[in-house]
């Protein structure tokens, strides 16, 4: 056998906002970088996202939010992962997120937050540096 670990990332849209163009572009960028991307679609609860991430054995979850509920939704995902003993899964986020919220999200365990204007290349490079496929 020739073992080959591939990075698996879930791109998820928690909450009620219905626009996923950004999430799809990021998913596409990750695909082009050679990652396996699981996209969950719109309107996901943190519970659904975490259950799916465990079933899919992803290395990381990228959360996208444009509607302002990130303060609750992002930390809730981190919390649920902890409850399930799956806190080795790295959570990052992106979307329309005010500057002043970013440090709070970081404190809550969100490893990085990308705001509008970040290039896909930068995001991909961040993933390559910070997310390693599990042993």
């Amino acid at each position: 056998m020739s073992p080959e670990r591939k990075i698996r990332i879930m791109v998820a849209k928690p909450g009620l906002n219905g626009h996923d163009r950004g999430a799809k572009i990021i998913a596409r960028g990750f695909r082009d970088a050679g990652f396996e991307v699981i996209y969950t679609g719109l309107h996901q609860t943190p519970e659904q996202i975490v259950a799916a991430a465990i079933e899919e054995d992803v290395d990381s979850i990228g959360l996208s939010s444009l509607a302002g509920a990130h303060d609750y939704l992002f930390p809730r995902v981190v919390e649920l992962l902890k409850e399930k003993g799956a806190d080795d899964i790295v959570v990052f986020g992106g979307g329309i997120i005010p500057e002043e919220d970013i440090s709070k999200l970081r404190d809550a365990g969100i490893k990085e937050v990308f705001t509008p204007g970040t290039s896909i290349g930068d995001t991909v490079n961040w993933v390559r540096r910070n997310i390693k496929p599990r042993k």
Binding site: R31, G34, E36, Y39, G41, Q48
Partner: peptide, 28 residues
Amino acid sequence: SPFTGGAILGDRIRMQRHSIDDGVFIRS
């Protein structure tokens, strides 16, 4: 993708409502 080795696995989107059901396990 035959070019990058990457993939977008999107079948789950249509089935996500079953993801919190312990009686269903979905793998892409």
